[in-house]
Design a protein around this nucleic acid. Structure first.
Lengths: 253, 253
DNA sequence: ACACTCCGTTGCGCTATGTGCAATGACAGT
DNA sequence: ACTGTCATTGCACATAGCGCAACGGAGTGT
């Protein structure tokens, strides 16, 4: 809708990868360099980008300032932190906190596993709903009608051999998830990783977010992963308690 | 320079505090609400803001995504992390990592103290150079000429009773800092807190950032704080080593 | 020392773009 | 049903933002 703003935001995402020069940016987004220069100047005034030397621009500090302010607002994150940090400490595996947004999963916190295998995820990153354990937990928390709408709107790209590829299968999986209270991603997103996830609930029993454990298959087979479920559930319940959850009502949406 | 972009960025900073409605935003930045609406729509397309319910907007996830990518680029942060985390663990006090940017200090990492007193700081936040220990360390690392320029350009607001309020005193303090290798903020920034800071150096001996310990005065008197200096210096040296620092050359700039 | 190249920067003139206004629509409270 | 609050849309005007082309300064090779 707003051309210059649109371009400026595009610039920012391009700068995220690495510092770039004016010309590079101009070429990448297909806009005349004088225009890019002017946009960058405005961005710089607001500390959204920063000049490095004379010719390189990189992302500026306003970005993390805003991001941190905003994250502090997200009560789930703050409230869940201790429980998830402890889970990470205890198991040594990667812990994610994620929420639903616009037909995708968004990671809102992450605790790195102690082993050296790094996952390709990051706070703020988005992931599909159909092949992640957190996605399943979140969608499974919706009332049936909404579940169907969401399921019908997905694409189901097969990211690995075991990815669920149809709305029918997905809905069946969601029933299972809702019933047993946790979700499994059996190498459906990345070949070498499998995960379990559980919901974190708020005061009215509504699901605020999902917490997951992600483990490389070389470290732990499926049974080993499932053995961690009680730990995960305990952490999710502790986090829920911190978010105001009291009873055991299941509470939809 | 670019009006619409300028307004959009202003919107973002206003949204940081708390979610707002269209009308509120329009009034706060003094622009017609239809205009604000269009800007918000563009921001929303890029996930920079997110609609909460029908009438509230809050910051979106693109922000954290970018912020994290940007922080990961900052090698100092990644390299210094283990040493600073250990320092935080060992002492139990708040540890900051900060760098110089445009006549201010910018916090690029923070490890919360274990005690309950929280400091008013945040990753991405800026602070003055004249009344922070990290600021002194960073400016003291500049060559004399640049030190003077910077010192002359500051405002010296007296934030507490002990704040340094003149360029002359500040320059004298910087000499002292450069000589002994660490800086002190004796409740010059916040009444109830005092800090010590030390430089983190890169491969050529240049100062990349400053690390600091901040302690509430009720927990530790000045002598107690100074007793932590060796710990701090050790951590800063370890971090420096990780950043490629080898020798003991002091290295300016 | 000179020419050459590479980039960031500036001035200019045009028009698409972003704007304010006023009317409309959606919704909630009384 | 009436009223008030707010988001949303259509429209017409003016200006803000655009691409162009020329400039300038730093770096490089001969």
């Amino acid at each position: 809708m707003s051309q210059s703003l649109d371009r400026a935001l595009t610039l920012l995402t391009h700068l995220a990868k690495e510092p770039k020069t004016l010309d590079q940016l101009a070429e990448e987004i297909g806009v005349h360099k004088s225009t890019v220069l002017r946009l960058l100047r405005t961005l710089e005034e607001h500390h959204f980008v920063h000049r490095e030397g004379v010719r390189h621009y990189r992302l500026g500090t306003a970005l993390f300032d805003l991001a941190n302010q905003s994250l502090e607002q997200r009560d789930v994150r703050r409230s869940a932190e201790p429980a998830l940090a402890a889970l990470n400490e205890r198991t040594g595996h990667t812990v994610h906190l994620a929420s639903y947004e616009d037909g995708e999963v968004v990671y809102i916190d992450k605790f790195e596993g102690h082993h050296s295998v790094r996952m390709y995820s990051r706070v703020g990153k988005r992931a599909p709903l159909h092949c992640t354990a957190v996605g399943k937990v979140l969608v499974a928390s919706f009332p049936p009608r909404r579940r169907q709408d969401v399921a019908a709107g997905l694409d189901y790209p097969a990211l690995t051999a075991s990815t669920i590829t149809s709305a029918r299968d997905y809905l069946a999986e969601l029933d299972l998830v809702a019933e047993r209270g946790f979700a499994l991603d059996n190498a459906e997103h990345e070949d070498f990783i499998h995960c379990v996830a559980a919901p974190i609930r708020g005061a009215r029993g509504e699901v605020l977010a999902a917490a997951s454990l992600s483990v490389p298959r070389v470290l732990l087979d499926l049974d080993g992963l499932l053995a961690l479920v009680p730990d995960l559930l305990a952490a999710a319940e502790e986090a829920s308690a911190r978010c105001g959850w009291t009873g055991h009502e299941k509470g939809n949406q």
